[in-house]
């Protein structure tokens, strides 16, 4: 093999497998979903018919889909700010603790939930929520409050999922913010301190702009994550119930497709989710593009 030949071929040998995997297992399924969404095929019966937009019409007529859409919005409105602001606050506090065992202890404790499987995390929480023997109802009893139904209560189910999803995900954002804050050069902060600015003001005007690329990254990944990561929590804790009160659109898609084998409807939901993600991503880039302050 001549060297010239090797250099011409090498890029594709090196990147080919990655491209192949991405295309076969991530892009193609999405393309197939678009196709499936206009048929009535479901894998059990061999025949498939073109049904136009019938599947889209059906899911829009389904009260569970509407509930799932509204829930998706609630999850976003609550969890996105919570998963950005609370970790940011914790990171700001952590950076004020002197490096050492104590600081490390905090970091590990706060990061632990992030590394667990959703089934593990979900089961740990199911046990806390358990109406009969669970810790929460017992603790409510200690302070004289009536027991609750927690994840089986239509009004509370969504909030139980929210808590677990938050608990499972805040640690990562906290680390990201912490890393960004650590990297701010000391002299800049010292100069600001000499100006006599109050800490909170200093944070808003100096530190926050300096970590804005991280802030942008966290905002984007958190928005994606709220749609995605929560599905595991929903599945283990409530299965989307009671009567769809804690489902989101991704879990709705999963249920339509693999619980009831309505592939057309599931694929229609998948297409809508993709469109939604494209729209949100575009919006975020537009919003943050001009505000992000890049260090170099």
């Amino acid at each position: 093999m001549t060297r010239k030949f090797a250099f011409a071929l090498a890029p594709w040998i090196f990147t080919g497998p990655a491209l192949l995997f991405a295309v076969v297992f991530l892009y193609l399924p999405v393309v197939f979903s678009v196709g499936l969404s206009v048929t009535d095929w479901n894998f059990i019966r061999p025949e498939a018919n073109f049904v136009g937009l019938e599947n889209y019409r059906r899911i829009f007529a389904d009260p569970n889909f509407r509930d799932a859409l509204i829930n998706t919005l609630i999850y976003c409105v609550v969890l996105i700010p919570a998963q950005i602001l609370v970790p940011l606050g914790l990171a700001v506090l952590l950076i004020r603790v002197r490096q050492g065992t104590v600081a490390n202890g905090y970091k590990i404790a706060l990061f632990l939930p992030t590394i667990l499987a959703y089934s593990t995390a979900g089961i740990a929480w199911l046990w806390l929520f358990d109406p009969l023997n669970g810790f929460f109802n017992t603790a409510l009893g200690w302070v004289g409050l009536p027991p609750q139904r927690w994840h089986t209560d239509p009004d509370l189910a969504l909030w139980c999922v929210t808590i677990v999803a938050f608990w499972k995900n805040f640690g990562l954002n906290m680390l990201l913010f912490l890393a960004a804050l650590v990297s701010i050069p000391k002299p800049i902060l010292e100069a600001a301190a000499l100006d006599g600015a109050r800490p909170f003001w200093r944070f808003l005007t100096i530190e926050l702009p300096l970590i804005s690329p991280t802030f942008f990254f966290v905002a984007v990944t958190t928005t994606m994550g709220v749609l995605d990561d929560i599905v595991g929590a929903i599945d283990v804790l409530t299965g989307g119930g009671p009567y769809g009160q804690s489902s989101n659109i991704l879990h709705y898609m999963y249920q339509r497709g693999l619980q009831f084998f309505q592939f057309g409807q599931a694929s229609a939901a998948a297409v809508l989710i993709i469109l939604l993600i494209l729209a949100v991503t575009w919006l975020q880039f537009r919003m943050f593009e001009h505000r992000v302050h890049y260090e170099s």
């Binding site: 358990d130 109406p131 009969l132 023997n133 139904r149 089986t152 119930g241 009671p242």
Partner: peptide, 17 residues
């Protein structure tokens, strides 16, 4: 009747509650 889902109900009954 404090409505529970079926599984929680079964466990509550067997647990004497």
């Amino acid at each position: 009747w404090k409505n529970l889902d079926y599984r929680a109900q079964a466990q509550a009954q067997i647990g004497g509650a």
